[in-house]
Computed example of a mutant assay.
Amino acid sequence: MSDSVSLDTLMLADSPRLDGEDPKHVELLAVAGAPLPPVLVHRSTMRVIDGIHRILAARLRGDSEIAVTYFEGTDFEAFVRSVQSNVQHGLPLTRADREAAVLRILESQAAWSDRAIAEVTGLSAPTVGAIRSRATDNSSQSQARIGKDGRIRPLTTAEGRRAAAKIIAERPDAPLREIASTAGISMGTARDVRDRLQRGDDPVPIKYSKDKVPPEPPRQDSAAGPDLQGLRKDPSLRFNAVARTLLQWLSICDINDDQRNNLIQSVPEYRRDNFAELALVCAERWRNLAKELRQPNRDTG
């Protein structure tokens, strides 16, 4: 249900648009002639959450009232809803608008996961992660993230296990469900932590420890295997049409830092997320191909 209210009672503030509203879009709405859809208003403040262009269009054509629907929630929740609404329909937010929205969300809710913020702002999770890294240093970042489903998850299993161990030490009789919920881990992990403490073991297995030295990645040189030039010289590949095609594809990937930077700079800013997602899909397909190629005596039919 929507109500009609006076335009004078509505407050136009706190828009996620950095450059304000688009006059041309306002004019298009004003001359359309059709009834304007209800605008979304924060009931406690009468601030317009979604529909400022419609408000301006209504004023331009001389209307005194407009239909509204109300939103109940905090100021932060109202801002999040405003960003979501402007991402999903109407005149889309610019990339700069969405990145600014990410920063504002991080200021209020740093514990939100990258995926949860990406869902709100219409950016990719890796982009949100990059913005988070630029905006905060490691010492100030929260040790947990709140996902889209509302569940709290630690940044690392080690942190969650240590938090659970602290809870168990302070309250040995605490229920597993409470321990898991407070520490942001599963009940199975909470049970394992309790069992390890009872045995006198470290609550964090070595495989989850930050202190464990990661294995050194294999060297990417001629000692690790044949390079691309060596593959091109192999007669069994040169005279195989399918193998030659594969070598051509690999040649495209064989670029240096300068070439990669030139590629990145040539992509318009508003399309970089699209290319990033496609690159990740291609990378996953190459990884699957590599796995299949390493299978011994694989019958390809």
Rank of each mutant, 00 (worst) to 15 (best):
S64W: 01
G129A: 15
R232N: 06
R17L: 07
A125K: 12
A174D: 05
L237I: 10
I55E: 00
D201V: 10
V120C: 05
N138S: 12
R47W: 11
P175H: 02
C282W: 13
I117Q: 02
Y270G: 04
L123H: 13
D173K: 14
A158C: 06
A174T: 15
K148S: 13
R244Y: 06
G129P: 09
L18P: 01
R260K: 06
C282R: 15
A223H: 12
E170R: 06
V80S: 01
I152W: 08
E269I: 09
E72V: 08
E216S: 13
E72D: 07
E216M: 13
L246V: 15
L18M: 08
D192M: 08
I167G: 11
F79T: 00
I105C: 02
F71Q: 02
W249V: 12
R194N: 09
A30G: 06
I152L: 15
R95N: 05
I168P: 04
S44W: 08
K291Q: 04
D211L: 07
A183P: 04
N288A: 15
A190Q: 07
W112N: 14
D195N: 14
S2N: 10
V41P: 00
L60C: 02
W286Y: 12
D202I: 11
Q265G: 10
D192F: 04
P217D: 14
W286N: 05
G147N: 13
L29I: 01
R196K: 15
R59E: 05
I252C: 08
A58E: 02
I185V: 10
Q259F: 03
R115G: 06
R54L: 05
A290N: 10
A30R: 04
P172A: 06
Y70P: 13
